[in-house]
Design a protein around this nucleic acid. Structure first.
Length: 327
DNA sequence: GGTAGACCTGGACGC
DNA sequence: GCGTCCAGGTCTACC
């Protein structure tokens, strides 16, 4: 018997705009259905994996309907609610988004402000590692295979779907397995090491506590410094994880930023020079710099491929290559 | 502190 | 269909 419940979002929340707001919405196990305007994925809950489907039948600001593939206990329902709150950034209220629009009013009319993310910091970190030094189609493949090889299966809607593997599951895997079956290449040992750092050791907790990183009372500098100490995490990845943690003051600049700086902002010079100029360009947006930067990039992608909520997960990947975007 | 080169995979391209 | 080239961020060794 399926469980059904409703989540009340902030008054300005729009599922199709706010979920389809960051590239990870196209990565397994996330699935956005452009026809039903509904998002689904398998969540890892205390009693085992369960697929959830999330829609917003009433439109902007109205309740989010959640349907689980199996009956959930009360505790599991709260667990699912908490995970979906993280994914959808429901903790960012209208006042937070209004503050952003106060600094950058270009996005006020469309209401843009929130960026989707994963149910856990661990998944966000692994997704970021799989996006480094690789073109987007490979990132899509790595995440699909990680789920299919190491995730927990769920039968839902007549097909088998998989959860994102837990830190504990990846920690038990051999690096060679990740390389051979998940095609993560040289990232194999780094991903396993990251998983071990997030896995509880006996009665002791994990070496890395997600709650410490999520705690906004810790300074940006302290969080950035600790992220930089992690295997496979450099300046770009650390800054990207910062925005996924809700700290938008730093810019994760990569080759896409250089392309944006040159073609849209009109900057000239070496990549390093353009990156410095891009940093200066967004500095006035302060604590919301990443939102301003990202929505400019996102608007560019949408100008090429239509609104993000129309993109199909399983065919959109190949559209996002540097070669095609530069045309 | 700055820089060069290796690390892997998959897409693009030429034949 | 096959071989070659290239894009992509992090890490290490070296200056």
């Amino acid at each position: 018997m399926a469980s059904r419940f409703t989540i009340k979002p902030p008054g300005d929340y729009e599922l199709k705009r706010d979920f389809c707001s960051y590239g990870y919405f196209l990565l397994h196990p996330n699935f956005w259905d452009p026809r039903k305007l509904e998002f689904s994925r398998v969540l890892s809950l205390e009693g085992g994996p369960a697929q959830v489907r999330v829609g917003q039948p009433g439109g902007v600001g109205r309740g989010l309907s959640v349907v689980a593939s199996r009956g959930l206990t009360g505790a599991e329902r709260e667990e699912a609610r908490a995970q979906l709150t993280r994914v959808l950034r429901l903790d960012e209220g209208t006042e937070t988004i209004a503050a952003f629009h106060g600094l950058d009013e270009r996005w006020r009319a469309a209401g843009r402000g929130r960026l989707m993310r994963s149910p856990t910091l661990f998944e966000d970190i692994i997704k970021t590692v799989t996006s480094c030094n690789v073109t987007w189609p490979s990132t899509v493949q790595m995440n699909r295979r990680l789920c299919e090889v190491l995730g927990d299966p769920v039968e839902a809607g007549g097909e088998r779907q998989f959860s994102f593997p837990s830190a504990e599951r990846i920690a038990r895997a051999r690096p060679q397995t990740l390389r051979a079956r998940c095609r993560v290449g040289y990232r194999d040992a780094r991903i396993v090491e990251l998983a071990r750092l997030f896995t509880p050791r006996g009665k002791r907790g994990p070496e890395l506590e997600a709650s410490w990183f999520e705690d906004l009372s810790n300074s940006d500098d302290a969080v950035f410094e600790r992220l930089m100490e992690l295997p496979g995490i450099g300046p770009y990845a650390a800054a990207n994880i910062m925005q996924l943690l809700g700290r938008y003051g730093r810019l994760p600049l990569d080759t896409e930023s250089v392309r944006h700086g040159k073609t849209i902002l009109g900057y000239k010079g070496s990549s390093a020079q353009v990156m410095k100029k891009v940093h200066r360009h967004y500095a006035p947006f302060g604590a919301h710099a990443f939102r301003s930067y990202w929505f400019e990039l996102w608007a560019f992608y949408e100008s090429k491929h239509g609104p993000a909520w129309t993109w199909e997960r399983d065919s959109t990947g190949k559209l996002f290559t540097a070669a095609l975007l530069s045309k």
